[in-house]
Design a binder for these strands. Structure first.
Length: 228
DNA sequence: CACCAGGCAAGTA
DNA sequence: TACTTGCATGGT
């Protein structure tokens, strides 16, 4: 019964966001390969910076699997510089493509076509791919229904008192996945909308002034949503 | 000038 | 297990 309430609230939130902002057309990339590269480059980094790095990779004709497999890490480092943490990220990219080479003969489609659980475990076993990067790749590159939790998801959920402040990644992911039908288009649009509304939430100031979710939350309902 | 961004891993106690 | 720290560029 609690789960029914939670599912209803989540769907109301989604509808409210969709009405306020419209479809977001995410992920901002052309191919599965670009989604994966972008997912690694955007770790704790503004997308504007990532876009510069991707543009440089495209300019250098590196947005193909063979090119990424063969490119020298030092060269990669310089090209992705604008995305920040470029030493770590260049290495993480190389590790991913080394793995694809050695375990999947560069067959990205086959790799992504695995069952969701196996794909997620394999991604998480790689250095530099944590839960958010893994779920982003699964949802937007593999088009399989894994709910993505990020900084904005946590901020919006805790600010609106749907979950405690310190809910960790997998509990917040379960908060959604336990009660939602696993539909890819819905998950994709929902995450994009949460990022969009997340930008409206001031980083320091509590509350959510100006965000379209503010008027829809009776405290009694909100309190009942917190997981026991 | 300070602070933040679509995280993650490694180190310490 | 539960904190803390390093990583780095570019926008506000």
């Amino acid at each position: 019964m609690i789960k029914k309430l939670r599912a209803d609230l989540i769907h109301q939130v989604f509808q409210r966001l969709l009405e306020a902002f419209g479809p977001q057309h995410w992920w901002p990339a052309e191919t599965a390969l670009e989604v994966i590269i972008g997912a690694i480059l955007t770790q704790n980094t503004a997308w504007t910076n990532v876009a510069k790095a991707i543009a440089q990779l495209r300019q250098a004709d590196l947005l193909t699997i063979p090119a990424m497999t063969l490119v020298d890490e030092a060269r990669l480092r310089q090209l992705i510089r604008p995305s920040g943490y470029y030493n770590q990220k260049a290495h993480r990219l190389k590790l991913f493509f080394e793995h694809l080479e050695q375990h999947w003969q560069r067959d990205l489609e086959a790799f992504l076509a695995q069952p969701l659980g196996a794909l997620r475990e394999e991604l998480l076993s790689l250095r530099g791919i944590g839960p958010e990067t893994a779920d982003s790749i699964i949802l937007y590159a593999a088009n399989q229904p894994s709910f993505v939790v990020d900084l904005y998801t946590q901020r919006v959920c805790s600010r609106h008192n749907w979950v405690p402040e310190d809910y960790d990644y997998h509990r917040l992911r379960d908060f959604f996945m336990d009660v939602l039908e696993p539909e890819v288009d819905f998950f994709q649009e929902f995450h994009a909308l949460l990022v969009r509304v997340g930008h409206l939430h001031c980083r320091k100031v509590p509350g959510c002034g100006g965000c379209p979710l503010a008027p829809m939350l009776p405290d009694s309902l909100v309190d009942s949503m917190a997981k026991p």
